[in-house]
Structures are given as C-alpha cells and as structure tokens.
Computed example of a mutant assay.
Amino acid sequence: MSTPRRSPFAGVRYEHLVAGVSGGVASTLILHPLDLLKIRFAVNDGPAASAKPHYTGLTQALGHIFRHEGIRGLYRGVTPNVWGAGSAWGFYFLFYNSIKSYLQGGNPKVHLGPGLHMAAAAEAGVLTLVMTNPIWVVKTRLCLQSTSGGGGATAASATHYNGMVDALVKTYKYEGVRGLYKGFVPGVFGVSHGALQFMAYEEMKAQYNRYRNLPIDAKLTMVEYLSFASLSKLFAAVTTYPYQVLRARMQDQHAHYDNLRHCVKETWRYEGLQGFYRGLTPYLVHVMPNICLVFLIYETVSGSSSS
C-alpha cells in the first residue's frame, strides 16, 4: 500500500519564525560591536588595504574606532544587521523546521540522522540566503565605512552611505541587482557552515537524550542547550571560516574582484593561508555568546509557544 504524500507546507509553524527573529534581534543588539570588528579584520589586508584603517589587534582596533568615530562608530551597520540577523534566523528556523518536519512525516520523535539533518539545514540556508543577501551586502558596507577612509568626490558619492536605505538605493543605482548579490557564491558555500552546525547540534541533543533514555525531542536545561549550541558552533566555525573572509572581501566597496576565483587568488598572493583566517579571533569572541543567546531564546520562545 502506498502512503499518501504529505504536503511540504503541513509542518510550517510560525512560532519558529517568531522565535528565530527574537533570538537574532536580541543577540545582534547586544553583540554588534564584535561583529563590526570581525568584518573589519576580515578585510584588514590585501590590495585594498590602503583605503581603510589598519588594525593590529582587538584592543588597538577598539581604541582607534572609538577615538575616530566614537560610540556611534562601534554601531555602524547595526540597522541592517538587526534586520538581517532577525530575518535570517527567523527564516532559517522556519524553513529548517518545516523541511525537517516534512522529512519526519510529521512525527518529531523520528530521528533523521546526520545526513538528512545536513540536507535540511543546507536547503534552509540557501532559501534564507536568497532572501537576505542584499541586507548582508549593505550591512558589510556600512560596517566598513569610516570617517578616515579615502576616495575622491565621485567615489564618495557612490560609496558613502547615509544609512541602510541609502546604501540599498546607491548599491542598486551604481551596481544593479548584481551588486546586491555580491558575495552570494561564497555565501552558498557558507551554507555548509549552518549545515554542519545544525547537524552537530541535533545529533548531540539526540544522542544525549538517548543516553538518558528519553525521546529525542525531550526538552533540555539551559546549561545543556548552551553547551550543545557553543560546541556545534565552534566545530562549524573552525571548519568553514574562510568563506566568510571571501564573502566580506567581495562585498567590500573599497576592493574590486572579478569573481570568487580572483578573490581567492589575490588573498593567497598577498597573505597566504593566514589571509583566509583574518578576523577569526574577534569572530569567535562574537559568535560564541551570539549563538548561545540565539539558541537559548529560540528554544525558550518556541518551547513556550508549542506548550
């Protein structure tokens, strides 16, 4: 007997969207300065370095930004970052749990295994990236904008932005739709980051609950959620970090790369292997508390909504 096909929309639950948005917005507002430092360190060298301030360490970078740009400088790009993180986490959790529910046939106690967990996370990542890439382009460019940058009058009019809307308009005006989707290809490669992270997170939760002789969807304590979230993020971050450097550099308004291959070639030429891990320290300092906040708020909000 053939079983009836289940609609892919049957598992859509909007509390996942609300929970993801809540976690993304809260963590971004608290930790944005660390994200800004990560982006600036990622593009801190290479052929376009002369157009930007040079940083030698976290303390020196914080001091330089504070002296030249004030507190406001530490929050450059926060508006698109809030929009981007909120919408990205919201859509990601919505898509991921909908796809996961479809693969489970609507039974949350069915264990999918590492392969299907990665597939669900990868599909959710691509769908989310299509919807949010323009916001990430604007966020990156606003974070890289500083009062000490160079450039003539024409360059300034094209690459100096007065806010999120102005950046979106100017990017589209001078570069078209292609400009809004710069960094999309390394972003697609970066889907592997989310896939590895969610695979590790789901597998650790499932194996831990099996060890306790509980259903795989049993709720955990705050400390357990935080532990699994941080360990899964650390695993994914170290494995896939170079794509974030390439993505930031391709989105940088001060640099000009023909394509991803050109960006890889120039990074290797000027900096070697170390160049692909620029900004890793501020990135880890930023993402570890970030992911803990996102997952903790997500699990709390989604858990209370479904109870």
Rank of each mutant, 00 (worst) to 15 (best):
H117D: 15
A120F: 07
Y92W: 02
T154C: 07
N162S: 14
N97A: 12
G150M: 06
S157Q: 15
H111N: 10
V137A: 03
G150W: 05
Y102H: 14
T154N: 13
H117F: 13
E123S: 13
A122H: 09
M118N: 05
L112N: 00
L103N: 09
T128W: 02
L144P: 04
A124H: 05
T147R: 14
T132V: 14
T154A: 11
R141K: 04
D166A: 06
E123R: 10
A158F: 07
K100A: 11
L94D: 00
Y96A: 15
A155Y: 05
A156G: 06
V165H: 15
Y102G: 07
A119V: 11
A120K: 06
A121T: 02
V126I: 11
Q104V: 10
Y92Q: 02
N97K: 14
Y102I: 08
H160I: 08
T147W: 09
A158Q: 14
T159V: 07
S148V: 13
A167T: 06
S148M: 12
D166Y: 07
P114H: 01
L144V: 05
A119H: 07
G163T: 11
N133F: 01
F93R: 05
L142K: 04
Q104R: 14
G115Q: 12
V138T: 13
N133H: 03
S146V: 11
G150A: 08
S98I: 09
A155R: 03
A121K: 02
M118P: 02
N107R: 06
A124M: 07
I99Y: 12
F95V: 08
A124Y: 03
S157H: 13
S98M: 14
A158M: 14
F95I: 09
N162F: 13
A155N: 04
G152A: 04
L142P: 03
T147N: 14
H117E: 15
P114C: 00
Y92P: 00
K100F: 10
T147D: 12
P114T: 00
L103F: 13
C143Q: 13
Y102T: 12
A153S: 12
Y96I: 12
R141M: 01
M131V: 15
G151K: 01
A158Y: 09
I99W: 10
T128V: 09
A121Y: 02
A153G: 13
L127A: 12
Y96S: 15
G149R: 13
Q104K: 11
A120R: 06
L112Q: 01
Y102F: 15
L94Y: 00
S101L: 10
G113L: 04
V165Q: 12
P134T: 03
M131Y: 10
Y161L: 02
N107E: 07
T159L: 09
V137L: 04
M164Q: 04
L112R: 00
L127M: 12
N162A: 13
V126Q: 07
Q104C: 11
M131L: 15
L116Y: 05
L127H: 05
